[in-house]
Amino acid sequence: MNKVPLTVKGAEKLRAELEELKSVVRPRIIASIATARAHGDLKENAEYHAAKEQQSFTEGRISEIEAKLSNAQVIDVTKVDANGKVVFGATVEIEDIESERKVTYQIVGEDEANIKEGRISVGSPIARALIGKEVEDVVTVKAPGGDVEYEIISIEYI
């Protein structure tokens, strides 16, 4: 299976969620199931069925996170020798040449992407256009509404 790139922060966030699920959520669900069982007939016990459904969801999420972490290639952008180029994990400020609107994105793994927080997937059209470029380079991004040109204003490795 291919390695999936993750930033250090992304890996830490997944590990924290996994720890929370295993040490807090799972025991709470087990206690809920035990309490529901004590109420008797399980066929018509909505509390029991709800707890079992929650258990199933939680166990699925635990498995999903463990799989992601086992296939992750954690990349610390502060230790990458990027030579001034845009690389995975870099934070890039770009300016739309036509509208002169500036925006800053961090290029992250697919699971970490969140446009509202300024994190875009390494597989997104903008990230693919930026990778390997330098400050003052102009890139063309093929967007649904047509090609958009951006100039790279700055690159940070934080």
Rank of each mutant, 00 (worst) to 15 (best):
S56W: 00
K85R: 15
I30F: 14
D81T: 13
D96M: 10
V108K: 07
H49T: 09
E12F: 05
V8I: 02
T35N: 13
E59T: 13
V80I: 04
E44P: 04
E44L: 13
R61H: 10
A51M: 01
K85H: 09
I29E: 09
N45Y: 02
I30E: 15
N83L: 05
L42M: 06
V87L: 01
A90G: 09
V74E: 01
K9A: 04
P27M: 12
F57N: 10
E66Q: 14
S32M: 12
E66R: 12
S99D: 09
T58F: 05
A82P: 02
E12A: 12
K52S: 01
G109Q: 07
F57L: 14
R15W: 06
S32L: 11
A46S: 15
A16Y: 05
D81Q: 12
A11H: 04
I75T: 06
A72S: 09
D76L: 03
K85M: 04
I65F: 04
A72E: 05
E64Q: 12
G40D: 08
L42S: 03
A38L: 07
R37W: 08
H39D: 10
A38V: 00
L21W: 01
I75K: 00
V24L: 08
K13H: 00
E110C: 10
R61N: 11
A51K: 00
E20K: 15
N71A: 13
A31S: 13
V103L: 09
I30V: 14
K85F: 00
E53D: 11
V86I: 08
T104H: 07
I62K: 00
T78F: 01
A11L: 01
E47Y: 13
Q55K: 11
K79M: 02
E12W: 06
D41H: 13
H39N: 11
E44H: 11
A82Y: 07
